[in-house]
Design a protein around this nucleic acid. Structure first.
Length: 127
DNA sequence: AGCGTGACGAGTA
DNA sequence: ATACTCGCCACGC
């Protein structure tokens, strides 16, 4: 609705609002059902825009407003720095985990990606 | 304009 | 299974 001075494109530098891309990423994060996860790469593919690193950037900056623990690394490693918080959520939602095989202590479980990965409703067409 | 960094990911050793 | 490399790409200095 607002107009811009002719000749001055609003390219980068967004005002206070979240960048459009960030909003889309967060939107997808909200779609992930409890007990399931999507990888950064999956989200990027689903959006057909950006890449894993861009999704990761958005999550690091604005993820606090959404279930951030449901967007994970493809190898299932818990988010460094928030392992216990994430683990609490996973246990509470019944997200499939792979307990450390060896009896080594200090090893937190990792996500069982084969079972926890959510396809984003592949047949629920988003286009 | 170059260079390092990062909530990544796949491939190789 | 772990460690390392490389490709990726937006950002900040």
């Amino acid at each position: 609705m607002s107009e811009r001075s002719p000749g001055a494109e609003p390219r980068e530098t967004h005002p206070d609002d979240l960048p459009e891309y960030a909003e889309r990423v967060l939107e997808v994060a909200e779609l992930i059902p409890p007990g399931r996860v999507m990888t950064y790469g999956d989200v990027a593919e689903w959006l057909e825009e950006g890449g894993p690193r861009q999704v990761g950037r958005v999550m690091s900056l604005y993820g606090g407003a959404v279930p951030w623990w449901r967007v994970v690394r493809s190898d299932g490693v818990l988010l460094p720095g928030h392992e216990l918080r994430a683990l609490g959520h996973y246990r509470a939602e019944g997200t499939p985990l792979r307990e450390a095989s060896t009896s080594a202590e200090g090893h937190l479980p990792r996500l069982d990606m084969r079972r926890a990965r959510w396809d984003g409703g592949a047949d629920a067409g988003h286009t």
